[in-house]
C-alpha cells in the first residue's frame, strides 16, 4: 500500500489532484483536463509504460464526459487510473498520441467514434467500427438504441418482433 500512496501524493503535490487507493495495486486519481497530459508524461517517466486503455464515461446528469486513462507499470506493478472531466457540449481534449503512438491513437479513434470526443493532435480519427453510420455517437447516454433499432430494422407487422414495441 505504501507505493500506491506515494504515487497519489506525488500527483497531489504537482497537479493538485484528488484520488484514492481502492485496494492493493489500484489507484484512482482525478486531475484537471488541462494538466492531464502533463500528468501522463510524468507517470510515463516514472515507469508507467503500459497504456492499458482509454475510456469515456458519459455522466449526462452532470453534463460532463469523464475520460479515463488506465496506466500500468511493469516495475512497480501498480495500475493508475487517471480521470479527468470535460464539458459534454464542448468535448475537446488534448491527444496523447504523440506519447504512445499507435496505441493511444487507436484507443482515441475508438472513443471519438463511439462518444464523439474530439482529440486535438490526433491525425487519425476516421471511423473504426461503424460503417455508413448516420445517427449520433452511439455510446452516449442520450442515444436510445432501442428506438433506433425499432425504427430502422424491426416492424410491427412481424409477429415475432412485436414484443419489442411495448
Amino acid at each position: 500500500m505504501k507505493r500506491e500512496i506515494e504515487v497519489l501524493q506525488c500527483l497531489k503535490e504537482k497537479f493538485g489532484a484528488e484520488g484514492y487507493v481502492r485496494r492493493d495495486r489500484r489507484v484512482f486519481i482525478t486531475v484537471d483536463a488541462e494538466k492531464v497530459k502533463e500528468a501522463i508524461l510524468l507517470l510515463k517517466n516514472k515507469g508507467y509504460e503500459h497504456l492499458s486503455a482509454i475510456s469515456v464515461t458519459d455522466w449526462i446528469k452532470d453534463g460532463e464526459f469523464e475520460i479515463t486513462y488506465h496506466l500500468w507499470s511493469y516495475e512497480s506493478k501498480i495500475l493508475v487510473t487517471l480521470k479527468t472531466r470535460i464539458k459534454r457540449d464542448k468535448a475537446i481534449i488534448e491527444s496523447i498520441s504523440d506519447i504512445w503512438g499507435g496505441n493511444a491513437r487507436t484507443h482515441e479513434r475508438e472513443m471519438h467514434e463511439l462518444f464523439g470526443v474530439e482529440f486535438l493532435g490526433n491525425d487519425d480519427l476516421v471511423p473504426l467500427f461503424l460503417e455508413d453510420w448516420d445517427g449520433p455517437p452511439p455510446f452516449r447516454k442520450d442515444f436510445d438504441w432501442r428506438a433506433y433499432v425499432r425504427e430502422k430494422f424491426y416492424s410491427m407487422d412481424n409477429e415475432r418482433e412485436r414484443s419489442y414495441y411495448d
Binding site: S52, A53, G101, T106
Partner: peptide, 30 residues
C-alpha cells in the same frame, strides 16, 4: 491482458462497462 472497467451509480445495472480486449491493440497498431 483482458480488462473490464466497470462504473456503477448505485442502480441494479452497471452505469458504464469498458471492455479492453487484448486483440484490439494486437490487430490494429501491432
Amino acid at each position: 491482458e483482458g480488462c473490464v472497467y466497470m462504473v456503477s451509480d448505485g442502480g441494479d445495472k452497471p452505469y458504464r462497462v469498458k471492455i479492453r480486449g487484448p486483440s484490439f491493440l494486437h490487430m490494429i497498431p501491432v
